[in-house]
Design a protein around this nucleic acid. Structure first.
Lengths: 208, 208
DNA sequence: AGCAAAAGTTTCCAAAAGGAAACTTTATTT
DNA sequence: AAATAAAGTTTCCTTTTGGAAACTTTTGCT
């Protein structure tokens, strides 16, 4: 199953990125610039000195009389110590707030694979920054995997029960027991193997 | 203690944002555009039709002969169905990779407060997207808190042992037992109170 | 209020961007 | 390999940007 298919079936697996947010805003560049400048407490003259753009040019940009060149925009962002995405960020950011999703024990969305038995948590919420799930590690040896698991983002896991070995591309394998945790870059190849009597159970959180 | 002081003392509590990443890239806009266009399998002519910019103009932009105006850039992003930050993303993003940090049981960095007893995990890594920690909920009633706890980002928690009540600004209080989990927006006021014999223990992950 | 200084806008012009078409290079067909 | 078509570049010219200075508006002071 590809990542895309994954996401079609499990929309809750979609992780929100700043990129998406940006796209919505129908950008009023001038307005935004003025906001930034005034919030920094700068006059046009001061901003002019910091950016190397003429006072008049800044005025025109703020009043949407001209469309700055990319070059000019770079001077803006350098001079005012902002980054480009910030220039396009909606004036009032739509801070998501007030969402809450409870998942009772064993009541997550089951998602079994040959090597893991995942239980997705908080699937009622979409566009979240993290994707939490509880997993049972079925794999018992290296060969259960075709290749390293590798994907964008960072991952954190904590062993809930049992014992497992954490293999990774650039490190020696490590054994982890109940209560131990690892944080790692998920684009570094990694895989897990249960070594205890019972299949090891872990809590897993991904962010990208 | 303010959030800033927090971060000074606990650098591992710093969470990296995409914004930071963007700033680093010394942008080669033309190169980037060409990459995007070719990856879409478009000729200059086709791209010209999609964007409304002349074939020659596109060529000049790609060869860094001219610096497109913001207007032109909007035509680009609209026509090619990309978003602006994407245009500035470094051709090869400096994907942090290969980091790994293991925290053995009980060996996190202790960080006690009047209401919680935190054990920060993966503190060897800085600039991570998530901040994981294990906490013992010391608070036994509402009054232990001066006010709602409220901060940026999203939070996920799973009860490891004991039982607790999750209070939040916009919802009725809920009881959570071992194995239950919640995902919520952290700028919605929230607080936790142990209700079991033993203080409840949870695993907590924050991202912003 | 009246004046001076500061902040912001508009004008005017040089410099740069954007488009149409000529031209060159790279692929494809015969 | 020549001929043809397609893709990309450069030229030439019009439109727009960006800067210096003139001008207008706002703010602060006596």
């Amino acid at each position: 199953m590809t990542d895309q298919q994954h996401q079609d079936i499990y929309p809750s697996m979609t992780i929100s990125t700043d990129q998406q947010t940006q796209k919505i805003a129908p950008i009023k560049l001038g307005e935004r610039l003025k906001e930034i400048r005034t919030s920094l407490g700068l006059t046009l003259e001061e901003a002019s000195q910091k950016t190397g753009l003429a006072r008049s040019t800044l005025s025109k940009i703020e009043n949407e009389q001209i469309s700055p060149t990319f070059q000019a925009m770079q001077k803006l962002t350098n001079g005012l110590q902002i980054n480009i995405p910030q220039l396009f960020a909606a004036p009032k950011q739509v801070n998501t707030t007030g969402r809450r999703d409870i998942t009772r024990k064993e009541e997550g969305k089951a998602h079994p694979t040959s090597t893991y038995e995942h239980e997705l948590l908080a699937t009622q919420l979409t566009n979240k920054k993290m994707m939490p799930f509880k997993s049972l590690i079925r794999a018992r040896d290296f060969d259960a995997y075709a290749d390293w698991i590798r994907h964008d983002g960072e991952e954190f896991l904590l062993v809930l029960s049992g014992e497992l070995t954490f293999f990774s591309e650039y490190y020696e394998p490590v054994n982890l027991s109940e209560g131990d945790s690892v944080y790692y870059d998920a684009n570094m190849g990694h895989m897990l193997i249960s070594v205890s009597e019972e299949d090891a159970s872990i809590i897993w959180v991904t962010a990208s």
